[in-house]
Computed example of a mutant assay.
Amino acid sequence: MPERNIEFGKFGARGIKGHEAVARQLDALAGFVVTPITARRGLAARLHYLTRSAHAREAARAAGLTVTDRTLTAWLDGRRSPSKRNLERIETAYRTVRRHNVARYLLARLNRAGRGTRVEFHPLDQSQVSRPQQRVVEYRTLNVRRWDRIVESWAVGDEAALDDAWISEVVVDLGSQWGQYEYVTNIGFAA
């Protein structure tokens, strides 16, 4: 794609890739447990989510949490604590399973029976760019009706596919200057 930025930030512009901002918004809509995993309450909430049914345990194992049921019970009872490595595995498994579980709901919520969701593009921050190098970039809105590839890529955690889906299905619809919105300060949508 001809408009991809090669040296973003060379003159002092600040922002993040659009697909990263979208992933943040989808994570916020997914409603993850807020309490950190290092707190007893946060660990218990994640473990209960991952062990509440046979299907949830199976999904947790598929996501990388491969400890015995006896160990899980000891962690839940507070008799033992998981190692740092296991805490990371629990967090990864929790986020993977939660994303998978809410993906279908989010897809229906964002597509809204073909009506789509209004998306706000907040342009990159050029306050540190000298005047001659600044671009005229403005706040834009767009109604997105096709969320399937975006939500699917987010649910499996594939950043490259999410970036490709975001650029090819949404950002290109902004017109001839779509390359100016590859990096943004924020992407907003209320679903």
Rank of each mutant, 00 (worst) to 15 (best):
E20V: 14
A21K: 05
A21N: 11
A21D: 04
R24K: 09
L26N: 06
L26C: 10
D27C: 01
D27T: 03
D27A: 14
F32M: 05
F32D: 01
P36I: 13
T38C: 05
T38V: 05
A39H: 14
R40I: 10
R40C: 01
R41H: 13
L43V: 10
A44D: 03
R46Q: 09
R46Y: 13
R46I: 03
H48K: 12
H48M: 06
H48T: 13
Y49H: 14
L50S: 00
T51Y: 01
R52D: 06
R52A: 03
A54V: 14
A54Y: 08
E58A: 13
A60N: 14
G64L: 04
G64E: 11
V67Q: 15
T68G: 08
T68W: 11
T68S: 14
T73P: 00
A74H: 14
L76K: 09
G78H: 04
R79F: 12
R79P: 14
N86C: 10
L87G: 15
L87E: 13
E88Y: 08
R89H: 15
I90A: 05
I90K: 03
T92C: 09
T92R: 13
A93Y: 04
V97A: 00
V97C: 00
H100A: 15
N101T: 15
N101V: 12
V102T: 06
A103T: 05
R104E: 01
Y105T: 13
L106Q: 01
A108K: 14
A108P: 08
R109K: 15
R109H: 01
L110E: 06
L110A: 09
N111W: 02
R112N: 13
A113M: 01
T117N: 03
V119A: 03
V119Y: 03
E120Y: 12
P123F: 06
P123R: 06
P123N: 08
P123W: 02
D125W: 06
Q126W: 08
Q128S: 09
V129M: 01
Q133R: 08
Q134P: 01
Q134M: 07
R135H: 09
R135Q: 07
V137D: 04
E138I: 09
R140A: 06
L142E: 09
N143Y: 12
R145S: 04
R145A: 00
R145M: 10
R145N: 02
R146P: 07
R149D: 08
R149Y: 11
